[in-house]
């Protein structure tokens, strides 16, 4: 029996590229592949044709757990009133270069 995914060349994988040393991997899109080895190679060919990267991650799309937009308010708004987490909250004499 043939799985549905094989008709287009495998499962969906999310692709992350590290553009250069010192930077984090950034999500760039997705590709299809039957397994991780092919996913890495497909990601290399599709997303780094112009030296866009020095390192790649591929992650099965089905394995990504995402926060829900419905929970956006309860997840992210509580951080909004905590100005004291930011350095600009504090007044110190300019001359001290703190």
């Amino acid at each position: 029996m043939v799985s549905a995914s094989s008709t287009t060349g495998g499962e969906l994988w999310e692709v992350f590229v590290r553009p250069r040393r010192g930077l984090a991997h950034v999500h760039v899109g997705s590709i299809h592949a039957s397994d991780a080895a092919m996913a890495l190679r497909n990601a290399r060919d599709v997303y780094t044709r112009r030296q866009e990267g020095v390192s790649l991650w591929v992650v099965p799309a089905a394995e990504v757990r995402a926060s829900s937009p419905d929970e956006q308010d309860s997840f992210f708004d509580p951080a909004a009133d905590k100005a004291y987490r930011h350095p600009t909250f504090y007044e110190v004499p300019d001359a001290l270069h703190l």
Binding site: T8, G9, G10, H32, A33, R41, N42, D45, V46, R49
Partner: peptide
């Protein structure tokens, strides 16, 4: 090619 990803790979 058998899949579009492979078109890109063979092109490379």
């Amino acid at each position: 090619a058998p899949q579009i990803e492979e078109d890109v790979a063979i092109g490379n």
